Computed example of a mutant assay.
Amino acid sequence: MHRERIPVYVVTGFLGSGKSTLLSRWLKEAPFSNAALIVNEVGEVGIDHATLGFSGDASMLLADACVCCSGLPALNEALEQLFWARLHRSIARFEMVVIETTGLADPGPLVASLSLNAFVKERYRMAGTFTTIAAPNAIDTLARFAEARAQLGGADVAIVTKTDLVSAEELDALNAQLPNARIAHSANASFALQDALALLAQPAHRIERPVARPFSRPRSHDAVTHFIAIDEASDIDGLHAQVRDITARHGDSLLRLKGLVRLKNREALALVQFARGDAHARITECAANAVKSGLTLIVRTQA
Rank of each mutant, 00 (worst) to 15 (best):
Q302T: 15
G16E: 06
A184M: 12
E267K: 10
D237T: 08
V224F: 03
R256C: 04
H88E: 11
S20R: 12
S234V: 15
L15V: 08
I207N: 09
I91G: 01
A112F: 00
V211F: 13
P136F: 02
Q273D: 06
L61K: 00
D106H: 05
S220P: 04
C68I: 14
E122F: 05
V98E: 00
D64T: 03
F274V: 06
C69T: 11
T284C: 00
A290L: 14
L297V: 13
L260M: 03
A204S: 14
D231T: 09
I207M: 12
R219T: 15
A189N: 02
G18H: 04
V166Q: 02
A85D: 11
L178H: 10
N40A: 13
L178C: 09
S220D: 13
E267T: 10
P73W: 01
A287W: 00
L142H: 13
L200E: 06
V98L: 05
P73M: 07
L23A: 14
E170G: 00
G18T: 11
D140Y: 12
H2F: 15
G53H: 01
V120D: 01
P109S: 07
V10I: 15
A290W: 03
G153D: 12
P218K: 04
R5D: 03
A30Y: 13
Q151C: 14
F14E: 01
T101H: 05
T161M: 12
E4P: 09
H88K: 07
L15D: 12
E122S: 15
E208Q: 13
G153N: 13
A155T: 10
T131L: 11
R5T: 14
L239I: 06
D195W: 00
A275Y: 10
H240I: 04
V8R: 01
R144H: 13
G103R: 04
P73I: 03
G238T: 07
S293Y: 02
R5G: 05
A150W: 11
L87A: 12
A65F: 05
I38D: 00
T51I: 15
A287D: 11
R144A: 13
V45S: 01
R144F: 11
A187Q: 02
T102Q: 00
P218W: 06
Q81W: 03
I159C: 02
I246R: 06
S20V: 13
A241W: 08
I139S: 08
H185R: 15
N40W: 09
L174I: 12
F130A: 08
L152T: 09
V8Q: 02
A270H: 10
P31H: 02
E80F: 10
Q194P: 04
S216G: 02
R3E: 07
L52N: 04
G294Q: 03
A212F: 15
P136R: 02
T161P: 10
G259F: 11
H88N: 08
A241S: 09
L82E: 02
A92I: 12
S70Y: 04
C286S: 13
N34S: 14
V98M: 09
S190V: 04
S293D: 00
D156A: 08
G153A: 15
H205Q: 15
L37I: 13
L15E: 10
P214S: 07
V299E: 01
N40M: 03
S24Q: 07
I230G: 09
N289C: 08
R217Q: 14
V157P: 03
E100R: 13
G251L: 07
A173V: 04
T284K: 10
G153C: 06
E80T: 12
G128A: 06
Q177W: 11
A187E: 06
L52G: 01
A229L: 08
A78V: 11
G259N: 05
E44L: 10
